[in-house]
Design a protein around this nucleic acid. Structure first.
Lengths: 334, 334
DNA sequence: TTTTCTATTGTTAACGGTAACATTACCACA
DNA sequence: TGTGGTAATGTTACCGTTAACAATAGAAAA
């Protein structure tokens, strides 16, 4: 357990050459004479040599690792973003270093420092609100940084995202068009994106002379929370006929709670979610939702970074991706 | 963009001391005279100094990073395992390096090498089947390695998991006890854990003189797949009255498909899942499922590694966690 | 035979921190 | 006045790999 990994020197000693020759063999076998190749390979196998990246990271400040900083790892949305990122980075031989900061800017600052201290070659982040120190670190890092999720962010970084505000406005308007009037917004977490969505919801309600009502919490969303919100809102506002949720989890939880109570969806209450996860698109009734390009977002972000790493100029740019309103069966038919 | 990060030397030059003094100040300010402290701090702030871990990793082979190798990152099960792991590691200042191998042993071998090349201090892995080379790397790594998920694994490593076979046997027996007879097993991915579950299902069926039927695919499970399997199985075996799925996704997908077809659950068909995700415990009808301690598994694994890193002897040990049979409302009441 | 070239292998230094040891300066005390 | 002690700071070497340059030997060319 305590004997440490063999180094190039160990392999070289076994073969009777210098470590430089072994190093050459590993990176470019043709540079080494045919006579040596077999014995070097044999020595590598025998010792189970595994390269050590640390020296390279130290001397070239290139780790071949990309830092990914997300608010949460358990959120389905981010899981799919990660999949998109890895789809692109993995074949290129880049390792992803994931970190999450639980929606806290202070923790985000720490995490940025940690990732940079490992010399990540590039960084993907996902919030537009940073502490001043974090801001400075990002500017001085000297590596490509890209911000994802929210295209309306005012951050000075390269951005790939969607317009959450307009997406929420459209979905709300769709519910109104379909005959829902007293629509409540279910919010959780209260991060930037949720605030954007609330803004869009309010705009649509006010444009139709309807009164916005918001149920909110700072804690995480869940199916259970959706059910709990529904109970509460029915007591406080018995006349509601629509619920728009900040994500599918809340919506599905609320929908189940309606089924338990015998409330007919969408006849008595229309329900809409956000993101369009697999389950929302398989369930009965089909959930009305905003389908967002989560995986594509990760993919595009990774591709942009790769280009930057391959020497292309990496300047600020805002890429707005499109979303899709899915009416499903959980809001009234027109 | 191209100017590189300031080093200790840069800070030292600005203050007019050697980098050693700055290094001391960062790690232990009392070792530096009061007169210097303010100017060093000012220089650190001005340059935005961020420590570089590479030299330390190089000279001490300690990265303060833990490698976590999972088959998939998008699977809800593993997301919760990760949360458990991070709950423990993060407060201790350890960074997690996540990697996944898409259920391919060859890719797993590559990933192990990659994680080791970054000098991770310990490793959490999740399959018992490794290539010989992977096996050797794990043995020679000289770091604590722990295997999670399957307590019946024959691997020579430290193990924390559950007995998937006996869990599946119990759930199948429960369905039989509740009056279901022609129970089909829905399998996906066909990894070790699924094979274990199939074994348990078969044992229970045969013990009751019932004929096991297995629907299987090597592709990933999803809600959609559950629905598709249901359609197929109804054609092939119109007399089935029960479905036991290798995970909740398949089960919920099958359940929705039943609802669409107007098949009554559980009266006409009983359905059970595996894992007990939040949704399974919120939906209508409540899903029968095996509740597994996913987060606890991650937590315990991380704690065991930490102890090993803090010098405690790290010997092979098998920790079997308990699961819980939840009857829900999707199988008949007794 | 001698020179030149080339293929192969060797040598040195560097990356940025820190452990271990060395030095300096100042003070207290005999 | 000199000695010993101590607090503060400096110096050196090392971790493992590779870029850059150096050296060697053998073959081809003159």
């Amino acid at each position: 357990m305590k004997k440490k990994r063999p180094t190039l020197q160990d392999v070289a000693d076994l073969v009777g050459v210098t470590k430089m020759t072994v190093s050459r063999f590993i990176r470019n076998p043709e540079q080494v004479s045919g006579a040596l190749r077999d014995s070097i390979q044999a020595a590598l196998d025998e010792l189970g040599y595994i390269p050590n990246r640390a020296p390279d990271i130290l001397s070239k400040s290139k780790s071949h690792a990309i830092g990914v900083l997300l608010p949460s790892l358990t959120n389905q949305v981010f899981a799919e973003v990660i999949r998109g990122i890895e789809t692109v980075l993995e074949p290129e031989g880049y390792q992803t270093m994931l970190a999450h900061f639980g929606y806290s800017p202070e923790l985000e600052e720490q995490r940025i420092a940690t990732l940079l201290s490992y010399n990540v070659d590039a960084l993907i982040i996902s919030e537009s609100q940073h502490t001043p120190k974090a801001q400075k670190m990002l500017e001085n890092a000297g590596i490509p940084v890209i911000e994802i999720m929210d295209s309306t962010s005012s951050s000075p970084l390269h951005i790939i995202g969607i317009d959450n505000c307009s997406a929420a406005r459209e979905m709300t308007q769709t519910m109104i068009d379909h005959g829902h009037r007293n629509i409540v917004y279910f919010a959780a977490r209260m991060d930037q994106r949720t605030l954007q969505k609330i803004e869009g919801y309010k705009q649509a309600m006010q444009a139709n002379n309807l009164h916005p009502i918001i149920k909110e919490t700072h804690s995480a969303s869940s199916f259970t929370l959706g059910a709990q919100f529904l109970d509460e809102v029915l007591t406080q506002h018995p006349d509601i006929d629509g619920i728009f949720c900040t994500n599918d989890d809340l919506a599905i939880g609320a929908l189940y709670a309606c089924q338990k109570k015998g409330l007919k969806v969408p006849e008595q209450i229309g329900i809409a979610g956000f993101h369009g996860h697999d389950i929302a698109r398989a369930m009965v009734p089909l959930l009305a939702t905003v389908i967002t390009p989560r995986e594509e977002m990760g993919r595009l972000a990774a591709e942009a970074l790769l280009k930057g790493l391959q020497g292309a100029p990496f300047q600020k740019q805002v890429i707005e991706l499109s979303y899709q309103i899915e009416c499903g069966e959980s809001i009234k038919a027109i």
